[in-house]
């Protein structure tokens, strides 16, 4: 383990402060007895109480998390397969063409993606709601996974695969024992960024949702006209704290149980 000098530490500290500043600002005002994100009046818990009283809001939050987790999982699976397919393509022109197609959804504004998906779903006859939202989120998260996995694949030493094959490993073994472990960081990066895409999306979800199904983003954006209530701040604060606790907890448990293993590997 290398130690960080003072200056690098300061640099990281500034980056993290900026990253978290808006979130702490939101949480700070979630305790405001006044109505909005300014003029802090008095400390109150009332907005937190309001979160738990609003059953509809809780259902929406759960919807949002379910969609995010499932869409990230499925898009990661499909994306990894896609990246492998692209990597193993022999025809370079074909490869470039597929890669460019892969990126189209990233350059298209959400409104266009949303509108064209809506037309697509109504044409095929998919009922708007959970399924259509899930499918759309999978669809727009795939490109980011592919882009995250590809550089790991191209860093991979091909002699590694050849060696494994020479040693009599089956193709399946090569995949599960050589390739996938090597690109694992790319897979996780893709998964987490897919989560980000899903949690943040408003426009696409707005177009393809229906029949009472809603996500937090759609809810928040449609509140803009009459003012976003501080209940949403309180809710975001709760989600944030739970997420951080989960991540740190998971990390700690993981380290404890896996410590010896990784220690040996290094």
């Amino acid at each position: 383990m290398e130690r960080l000098g003072k200056l690098p530490k300061l640099y990281l500290a500034i980056v993290f402060i900026i990253l978290y500043a808006p979130i702490f600002y939101l949480i700070f005002y979630s305790f405001n007895s006044g109505g909005g994100m300014s003029n802090f009046e008095e400390f109150t818990w009332e907005h937190y109480a309001a979160v738990f009283e609003d059953k509809r809001l809780i259902i929406i939050v759960l919807n949002t998390i379910i969609i995010a987790l499932l869409s990230a999982l499925l898009s990661t699976t499909i994306g990894v397969i896609g990246a492998l397919a692209i990597y193993f393509m022999r025809n370079k022109k074909m490869r470039n063409a597929v890669l460019s197609l892969n990126n189209i959804l990233m350059v298209s504004p959400d409104v266009i993606i949303g509108a064209s998906f809506l037309i697509l779903f109504t044409m095929i006859g998919v009922k708007l709601g959970f399924a259509s939202v899930l499918i759309s989120h999978i669809a727009f998260s795939i490109p980011i996974v592919v882009i995250m996995v590809l550089p790991k694949l191209s860093e991979m030493n091909t002699s590694l695969i050849d060696a494994a094959l020479d040693l009599g490993a089956s193709r399946k073994d090569v995949m599960t024992r050589v390739i996938l472990p090597f690109i694992k960081p790319g897979i996780f990066a893709g998964f987490f960024l897919a989560l980000t895409y899903s949690l943040d999306d408003f426009a696409v979800t707005f177009f393809v949702t229906g029949n009472g199904f809603s996500t937090l983003s759609v809810e928040i954006y449609s509140m803009a006209r009459t003012g976003i209530s501080l209940t949403i701040n309180a809710l975001s604060g709760l989600i944030f704290i739970v997420t951080v606790a989960l991540v740190i907890g998971y990390y700690a448990i993981n380290r404890k149980t896996k410590m010896p293993l990784t220690g040996v590997k290094k």
Partner: peptide
Amino acid sequence: TFDSNEGMMSKIEQGG
């Protein structure tokens, strides 16, 4: 909920 008149109309027009 919706956040714009136009978005709302697009959805109603498209059906589903």
